[in-house]
């Protein structure tokens, strides 16, 4: 079986600030992430893992280096191009869910599709399918404050995957959840990985790393170890 790398990262560098106040968040990161896998990026605070995730997700551009997505170089030359890459190719899941409080579950998930020229009927169909996949279709009209932490994270995952991205980036997705709920969320990620998605998770939690296929360990802005 031929295994493709969905992401190939080459010598990425990123610095914040200038001169004496400069912080070298990434000092030349090189790594590969295979498709249809779950990969954990681990490291202490300040190791650069979230910065790497943000670059891979098109939230910022690297100062030096490059990366490819599905074999093609990702154009990071403008904010518009980064937005397009982020919109079309990437799903994001963050630690504190980032749901909009005055939108219900349906509206929060549909937000991903709203500005993509998709018809309302199609949006409705896809949102319902995604919520069903994640087992929260009964909460479709509920508001975030009516949901548990695990349910909110499912909604956030639904929002990330409803546009069918190949790549899902998760920044501490279980950080705000209890053990049981964390395990449920990891099960969902595993299902997604097994059905054609690639999941990259930034985490402190060794149990999350254990559940992943690969682990990239970072320290001081560099990859010190990549374990399969």
């Amino acid at each position: 079986m031929i295994v493709m790398n969905i992401l190939e990262i080459k010598d990425i560098k990123k610095t914040f600030g200038k001169k004496d106040a400069a912080v070298h968040a990434l000092r030349g990161v090189t790594a590969e992430i295979q498709e249809n896998t779950m990969t954990a990026i681990m490291g202490k605070s300040g190791s650069g893992k979230s910065t790497l995730l943000n670059i891979l997700g098109g939230l910022m551009a690297a100062d030096e280096g490059s990366f490819t997505y599905a074999g093609k170089p990702v154009d990071t030359s403008s904010n518009r191009k980064l937005r397009k890459y982020r919109r079309d190719q990437v799903g994001f899941v963050v630690q504190y869910f980032a749901l909009i409080d005055d939108l219900n579950v349906f509206e929060n998930v549909a937000l991903s599709l709203r500005y993509q020229g998709i018809s309302r009927r199609e949006i409705k169909k896809r949102v319902k399918e995604t919520l069903k996949l994640l087992g929260i279709e009964s909460k479709i009209k509920a508001y975030p404050n009516e949901l548990s932490g695990g349910q909110q994270q499912r909604v956030a995952i639904a929002r990330a995957i409803v546009k069918k991205p190949k790549l899902i980036l998760a920044d501490e997705p279980t950080g705000a959840l209890d053990v049981k709920t964390s395990a449920e969320v990891m099960d969902i990620f595993r299902q997604l990985a097994d059905t054609g998605n690639t999941i990259v998770i930034v985490t402190h939690d060794p149990k999350v790393a254990e559940a992943c296929d690969d682990v990239i360990v970072m320290e001081d802005g560099k990859v010190v170890e990549q374990v399969s």
Binding site: G58, L59, R80, R83, K84, Y85, R86, R87, D88, V90, F92, V94, A98, L99, I100, L111, S112, R114, Y115, R159
Partner: peptide, 16 residues
Amino acid sequence: RKRIGICRLLGTENRG
């Protein structure tokens, strides 16, 4: 502000 940030996270264009 949060909603604007989320929309930008999702890659929504500014005009949208």
